[in-house]
Amino acid sequence: MTLTFTLDPVVDPSLSDGILALWADVSHAGGAVGFVPPVTPDDIRPSLDKHLAAVADGGCRLLVGHDEDGAVAATAFLAHNTHRLQLHWLWAYTVMVHPRHQGKGYGRELMAATEAAARSVGNIDAIRLTCRGGLGLEHFYASCGYKEVGRVPGAVRVAPGDDRDDITMLLPLY
């Protein structure tokens, strides 16, 4: 099976709850999406609310992948740059695939859908994203065509004594 992707879906309570559950499940599985387990949906909700406010304001696009059961299985947010000299690229962030779907190629599907979404915006030359070091995520993104363009050693503190690199990846679209 594959995921069904929707760019800019109507955000209703069901979708919001689905994204919140995905985010919690990814976090508990050790996913590098801004939280470290243990984390509760109440811990995550303020961050999701900020993401969804940016979507509502038009500064961000939401890409959602649903599985064959209709459950939220993947997301990526595409943020427009606000600096007038950087309007030609987007940030991809909170890129997630549900742990039960990992290893099925859905991550590659999500990244292909993210690229297609960025191309549909028009006048976008590249997608940038950051990932946490120590998990090999940069290798996955490289296999999807992204190139490492920056690394800040120890910029992400996962726990006391456990600092990870913040890695910036870029996908040129030209």
Rank of each mutant, 00 (worst) to 15 (best):
A116T: 14
P46H: 09
G58A: 11
H28F: 09
M1A: 15
P38G: 13
T168W: 07
R84P: 08
T4G: 12
T168F: 07
H28Y: 08
P41D: 09
R119N: 07
G59I: 08
G107P: 02
N81R: 09
D8W: 04
T2K: 14
G34P: 02
D163H: 11
S143H: 12
G134F: 04
N81I: 06
L129C: 06
S47T: 15
I19N: 00
H80D: 11
D57H: 14
G107Q: 01
T2Q: 14
H80F: 15
V55P: 00
I44M: 03
G105H: 09
G103C: 04
W91S: 07
T40D: 09
H83K: 15
Q102E: 15
W91G: 00
D8I: 03
G105W: 05
A159T: 07
T94Y: 10
G136S: 08
Y146L: 12
E148L: 06
R151H: 05
A79M: 12
M111Y: 02
A112V: 11
A29R: 06
V97L: 07
P38S: 12
W89A: 05
L129P: 02
S47C: 13
D67P: 06
W23K: 01
R128Q: 12
T2I: 12
Q86E: 12
H98G: 09
S120N: 10
V39P: 00
G65C: 05
E138W: 04
M169P: 02
H98I: 05
D42W: 07
G154M: 04
V121E: 12
L3W: 04
D125F: 07
G18V: 03
A118Q: 02
N81V: 08
D67G: 10
V33G: 03
D125W: 08
A92I: 01
G150S: 07
G145L: 07
A155F: 10
D165T: 10
Y146Q: 02
G65W: 00
H80L: 15
A112P: 01
S14Y: 07
F35R: 06
A74L: 06
Y146S: 03
V121K: 11
S14A: 15
G133A: 06
T40L: 12
